[in-house]
Amino acid sequence: MRRRTNQPDTPITRAPAGERPNNPQADPNWDPIAIEWFESLFESGQSFFYERSDIAQARYVAEVMSRNLSQGQRVSGQLFASVISAASELLTTEGARRRLGVELTKSPSADMDAGLDELLNSYRDE
């Protein structure tokens, strides 16, 4: 008889999610890159999982990002690593989503590369 060895030692405790807030607005005083990053979070599929605390964290990360970009100085490696780590916790990268078992799918009509699979399959068949 086989037994799974990768099950978590601690059982998962489930709790009801809070009410999903409306998409928050970026601070117009932020650097344009920080604004684009913040707004992109709520246009992405992972925002389905966001709670108010995630939005608060995103706001803080965007604020730090904006302040750093606005200084016009060399970007601190340590600050950059911290911002990327915090962004990863918001599931902004494919790797972060895979580690947590989150897979985002696109509808066929919204997928710009919909014909790519068919093209690759026909190429493989030749």
Rank of each mutant, 00 (worst) to 15 (best):
M1K: 08
R2G: 06
R3P: 01
N6A: 06
Q7N: 15
Q7C: 14
P8H: 13
P8G: 08
D9R: 15
I12R: 09
T13M: 07
R14C: 02
R14N: 01
P16I: 04
A17K: 03
A17P: 00
G18V: 04
G18Y: 05
E19H: 09
N22C: 03
N22G: 09
D27I: 09
D27W: 06
P28E: 11
P28K: 06
N29D: 13
N29M: 11
N29T: 15
W30L: 04
P32H: 06
P32C: 03
I33Q: 03
I35P: 00
F38I: 05
F38W: 08
S40C: 04
E43V: 13
E43I: 13
S44A: 13
S44Q: 10
S44V: 02
Q46R: 13
Q46K: 06
Q46G: 03
Q46M: 11
F48A: 15
F49I: 02
F49P: 00
R52P: 00
R52M: 07
S53K: 09
S53N: 05
I55G: 01
I55M: 06
Q57K: 15
Q57Y: 10
A58G: 03
A58V: 05
A58C: 06
A58D: 01
R59C: 06
Y60E: 09
Y60V: 02
V61F: 02
V61W: 00
A62Y: 01
A62S: 11
E63C: 03
V64F: 03
R67G: 15
R67F: 05
N68D: 06
N68P: 00
S70P: 00
S70C: 08
G72M: 09
G72L: 11
R74T: 14
V75K: 08
S76V: 11
S76N: 06
S76C: 07
S76M: 08
S76K: 08
G77E: 13
Q78R: 14
Q78D: 12
F80N: 02
A81V: 01
A81Q: 04
A81E: 03
S82G: 12
S82Q: 14
S82R: 14
S82P: 00
V83G: 00
I84Q: 11
S85L: 11
S85D: 10
A86P: 02
A86K: 11
A86Y: 09
A86M: 14
A87Y: 05
S88G: 14
S88Q: 05
E89F: 12
E89I: 04
L90C: 03
L91M: 14
L91S: 03
T92M: 09
T93Y: 05
T93F: 07
E94H: 09
G95L: 08
G95W: 06
R97W: 05
R97S: 01
R98K: 15
G101L: 02
E103H: 15
E103I: 11
E103G: 02
E103C: 04
E103D: 10
L104S: 07
L104H: 06
L104K: 07
L104M: 13
T105A: 15
T105S: 15
T105Q: 15
K106H: 08
K106Q: 10
K106T: 12
D111E: 07
D111C: 10
M112F: 09
D113V: 00
D113E: 10
G115Y: 01
G115C: 02
L116C: 00
L116K: 04
D117F: 09
E118C: 00
L119I: 08
L120R: 10
L120S: 04
L120F: 13
L120A: 10
S122R: 12
Y123Q: 07
Y123V: 12
Y123E: 11
R124Q: 10
R124W: 07
E126I: 09
E126V: 07
